[in-house]
Each structure stands twice: as structure tokens, then as C-alpha cells.
Write a protein that binds this DNA or RNA. Structure first.
Lengths: 204, 204
DNA sequence: ATGCTCGCCGGAATCGGACCTCGTCCGGCC
DNA sequence: GGCCGGACGAGGTCCGATTCCGGCGAGCAT
């Protein structure tokens, strides 16, 4: 318990604990006397009664006071993020595989990606909606469009090559998706550069 | 598909499937064409549309028709009971450990028992309520009373010995629990035999 | 005296609610 | 065909309330 926190109104930790404020995550910890568990202030489990808890300035202090770490919020881990380390590690790896490795391009499916991550495709989908706000295939599509835009700006490759290199399975899909995102067909996005081309960088 | 089941009203399997009738469990199986899965009629998942399923007389017939067994209701298992084989196997083992081995006597706890079964004590509790209608400790208490009653009828042991041998941790608890179950103290239950005892079966 | 029963009492184990994660299957959509 | 999201269950974690446990000591009968 922190000394001298009863006077002059309410300690900031009080409110942070009540509201599960992520801004205070890792700045202090809550020990529950009835269960001997200590939590982060963002822990999703139902909160105990105020009279049953005490505030602690660090995980080490909580351990020293005889509390064990909560199995849900993992207060003993070092890094604090908007959500759990487990879920975040999984989805961050998934995003990396999609964006950098093109795990969903070509014949790669969401099921295959989920298998690589050790979870079901349904759960991978849920994680994307929760932590990324979009579905796996939507993230893959966005990544493909970004890659295509880059090739469009920086090279003079023909459209069919750009579509294939960006990860699209066909020129048809490339045109359709690109048009939907940029409200303009791919050739229109390159026009400003191709008005006065110095020369064709590729072989005829 | 069973031949000749369209005419003369409704086949019994139709109703059994709709109502998930446990009485027909194992008597027939349902193949779902859209997913290639075959189920028992008690399967808890949402039921597919009637037009998407076909009835099959055995698990072997379903496998031969190209369906794979459902992972929820486990139609490929041989024995059919009111509930799943997994849950039943676990709780049957738990009951055996409690009644035969006295897993909850002495210093044995529900937590330790759950650990031996590979689940949490909370879930073990849930399984007992669902499949047995009583909590683990209640089953243990009943078993202790049964053992004590047997010793009471068949031996002339003193009360303290009976209490300990039956698995009670103290004479105090033995008296209290026995009285609550039989509405009479232990000595009263032995009185009819001890009115005219042929002889004491134990050494003096 | 010895053995059995029972009220009292503080601490520990149990009980059941609330909430969460994840798996499985399904119909609808593209 | 794959992707999407709804429905629902299994199982895990924490929590407050309740019950259970075992020792102590007092009656009571043999």
C-alpha cells in the first residue's frame, strides 16, 4: 500500500483502476487480498470490491507482498501494449506473413495461414476484427494494392507484370480492386509520370 | 439415402433428428452435403436445412458415402450415452477415484483431483453437476457415509475407528454427516444388531 | 472412567456466477 | 470454390458467498 494516499481526494490510480485505463497499464498493479492474485489495471476479469484490493507500484513489489501474477492479464511480463501479449504476438506475426511474405497471395488460404499460427481460421478472423478492424483477406488486399501502387509509381512495368508481382492472381482482379480503392483505373494513376517519359526502362 | 422413405408420411428419423431425440442416438446418422460432415442426431451444433442433409443407417455407411465424422458429437465412437464419450470418461474416472480410492478423503482436495484428470476444478465441478447431479465433495461425502454404514453393520469397531476407516478426518464430522443423512446418530443405527449379538466378531 | 454425541468457532475449501478464449459447424455471400 | 460472421458449446480464470472442516469442551449414557 502506498503511504499517504488517503488524504486530499482520490489517487489517480483509483480512477485508472475503475475505468481499466490503458494509459496506466504497467504503471501500477492491483493486489487482491481474497485470492492472492495481482493484476494489471486493464485485466478483463470482473473487478473485486474496492475494500479487498491494494495498490502496488511494481510487479516486484506485488511478488514481494506474496501475490502471484494473474493468469489472464500476465502482469509479470515486461512489455505493455493495448492488449494481451499472446493475442498481439499471434496477430502481429499473421500481419507480417500477409504483408511481407504474401501468405494470402496466389493459392495461400486463410486456413493455411491459421494452421501456421496454430489456431483455427475462425479465431484468426476474430483476432483480426478485434485488433486490426479488418479481415485477413482485406489486409492482404490492401497490401497488394500498396505493392501495386509502388510498382506503378517507381517502374515502367506493364500492367500484367505489376498485377502478378503485387500478388494479384489475375489482371482482371488487379484492375477491379485498384479501381475500387483509388476510384481510378491503374493506368490513370501512372499518367502524370508517363506524360513525358525520358525513355522506356524495360526491354521492348 | 434410404430408399422408399418419401411416401406414406414421415419417417421416424425425421422427427428424431428435429428434436435431437437421445433415444435414437446411434440408430442412424445425418450427413450434411454442404460440409461433408456426418453427425449423430443429438449433435449440439445448429442444424442444417432439411434439404441439405441425408439419413444414413450407420457410421460405416456415412464414411463410405464420403462424409467425415463431426468433431463435436463424435459419431465414429462405438458407445452411445446421454452425453459425450470424452466428458463421460473423465467424470467416470473421477467418480472411481473418489469412491474407490478415496481421492477426496484426508487431505485430498478437489483441485488435486482435477489436476490428476487434466482439467480445472471449476470444470470438474461443472461436469459433476451436469452428469451426476451433485458436486464432487457431495459424492465423496456420500461414499464415506456408505463405507461407514457398512462398517457399522458388519463390524463391532468403536466409532472413532469407523470414522477414520470410512475416510472421515475427524469423529466430529462423522457424527454430524451421518446424523444428517440418516436422521439418527451412528450408535442408533447399530442398536438393533447389538441387542442380541451372537458374538463380537473382532478381538476384545 | 470410558465412550458417544453435539454446540460453538475460526480458518480453509467449496460452490456457483460472470466473463473470457477458442473450437466447430452452419448459411450466406462473392 | 473460399471468405465471412452467427450460433453455440467446452473449458479456463477470477471472484464473493457459502459451506465444510476439525479441534475444543460440555453433557450424557454405560
Amino acid at each position: 500500500m502506498i503511504a499517504g494516499m488517503e488524504q486530499d481526494g482520490e489517487h489517480p490510480w483509483e480512477r485508472a483502476w475503475r475505468e481499466r485505463d490503458p494509459a496506466f497499464d504497467g504503471r501500477f498493479f492491483i493486489g487482491v487480498r481474497t485470492t492472492g492474485v495481482y493484476c494489471r489495471c486493464v485485466c478483463p476479469v470482473r473487478q473485486p470490491f474496492r475494500c479487498k484490493i491494494e495498490f502496488l507500484p511494481s510487479a516486484a513489489a506485488a511478488e514481494a507482498a506474496g501475490f502471484r501474477p494473474c493468469l489472464r492479464c500476465r502482469p509479470e511480463t515486461a512489455h505493455f501494449c493495448p492488449a494481451w501479449k499472446d493475442s498481439l504476438a499471434t496477430i502481429e506475426r499473421a500481419v507480417w506473413l500477409i504483408v511481407a511474405e504474401g501468405a494470402l497471395d496466389g493459392d495461400g488460404t486463410v486456413d493455411a495461414l491459421a494452421d501456421r499460427l496454430g489456431i483455427t481460421s475462425r479465431h484468426l478472423h476474430r483476432l483480426f476484427i478485434r485488433h486490426w478492424g479488418a479481415t485477413p483477406s482485406a489486409v492482404a488486399r490492401t497490401a497488394r494494392v500498396q505493392r501495386a501502387k509502388r510498382l506503378l509509381d517507381m517502374t515502367g512495368l506493364p500492367m500484367s507484370d505489376i498485377a502478378l508481382r503485387a500478388g494479384f492472381g489475375s489482371l482482371r482482379r488487379f484492375n477491379a480492386v485498384f479501381s475500387q480503392v483509388y476510384r481510378w483505373p491503374p493506368s490513370a494513376m501512372r499518367r502524370p509520370r508517363s506524360v513525358s517519359p525520358p525513355h522506356r526502362p524495360t526491354s521492348p
